[in-house]
Design a protein around this nucleic acid. Structure first.
Lengths: 236, 236
DNA sequence: GTCTATATCTGGATAGAC
DNA sequence: GTCTATCCAGATATAGAC
């Protein structure tokens, strides 16, 4: 947590949160411990990585429902019986993905270092942080957005609550700016929802950004800039 | 076409384009003629309405892949054998939905009355028209967005091309405004994509707008307003 | 034009050997 | 801890009566 959000760039973010590689699979193992028959982390981590990565590959191209566990077995090189030592059921696998992502977002969102910043810097930290996270955990976000209908009612509602909470976090920052006399107090709820939506575009419309050759830094700067403009921020 | 876009409101739009009721199912019948065994429109229209409406109900809540044709048979009251007189296969049904929506959008988008307007009015006509259309054909849009992965490669690409074409249409309007000295020439491609995305929110995030009690007129005005602000339009 | 009955197959899940 | 073999529910699709 040391270098974030002092240096707002994706390297600093990567080093602070470590949402990739072994720490990520250890997080998955931890969250999912009781659903698995395998108790030894040394053995489990590698297979969990295979299972989740291949699920993203298959589900994010043809859809989770359309992906069979036989497809997954072939892609991972793990037998059908083997798979069931790691998951309770197919639905359980989707549920695990949603749960891990939600808990990870929750961790990053409750970062105290960001909360203590002044409105404009806080806004920047939220926007850049969220885009960096979307980039790093792209397949997770993409999966959860497009497969939400297949989840249980509780999970769907948790996912919606999460998005509302994110909107609220942005809205609170807007309001702090209004109180400081920096922003205009005009349709802040809709503006907050719009900022959230701009951020989601980064994982939903990859093809469009690739097509237009927009880099992640360009896009983060764009979202930050447009948000300030919408708030009628007068820079010094 | 007479009263649009002179009076920009949803009633005028509804009367001009008639994208509901019998004319809509006649359009479906027409597009889908050769895939059906039924040749008599009098008989077909009612059943097509049942089949498509129930497909939306089931697929837009549990997902198209998760919906079985038995579910659809039960929901429509048409037997399994009966269904197959109207569709070639399950995938065929999804393809039909995409095709009908795309052709309908294409019709509305090529409206000459809008193209001849001045930049600001044109922008308003495009934004309001698109939101009205999203509202009227909501289940169609929602289905196509979330079930795109299940479509054939050709159809997926056609859908992406359609979105790029829409972006282009907005971008052209922006550029016309820049040439007329009304708008600033700053990251217009990203701004156009953002306007498209704000419009898509109307059918993607219904729950959020319902929660915040935002009416369609409020939201259309918001999108128009924010787009002009982003373009740094100086109103007279 | 619509139904019932049925053929055929796929996919999730498990038992039990190793 | 992993694999093979198998069970069986449920899905698409069609044949043929009415």
């Amino acid at each position: 947590m040391s270098s974030w959000p002092e240096n707002i760039n994706i390297q600093a973010f990567r080093e602070t949160w470590v949402l990739e590689g072994e720490p990520l699979w250890a997080r998955v193992f931890d969250t999912h411990r009781e659903k698995m028959q395998i108790k030894n982390p040394q053995i489990a981590l590698g297979n969990l990585e295979k299972i989740f990565t291949c699920t993203f590959k298959l589900a994010n191209s043809k859809g989770f429902q359309a992906m069979s566990l036989r497809d997954l077995s072939r892609e991972t090189g793990i037998s059908m019986g083997g798979l069931y030592a790691y998951i309770g059921s197919k639905d359980d696998l989707a549920a695990a993905i949603e749960e891990v992502l939600r808990k990870t977002i929750d961790d990053v969102m409750s970062d105290q270092a960001v909360i203590s910043l002044s409105p404009v810097h806080r806004l920047k930290a939220i926007i850049y942080g969220d885009i960096f996270m979307n980039e790093i955990m792209h397949p997770w976000y993409y999966f959860c957005y497009l497969e939400a209908k297949g989840l249980s009612r509780e999970q769907r509602e948790a996912a919606m609550a999460m998005e509302l909470k994110f909107d609220e976090r942005i809205l609170d920052t807007f309001k702090a700016g209004v109180e400081a006399g920096l922003f205009e107090d005009d349709r802040l709820e809709l503006l907050a929802a719009n900022t959230t939506s701009m951020l989601q575009q980064w994982y939903l419309k990859r093809w469009k950004f690739a097509h237009a050759q927009t880099s992640i830094e360009d896009y983060a700067a764009f979202v930050f800039d447009i948000t300030l403009r919408n708030l009628q921020y007068k820079s010094a």
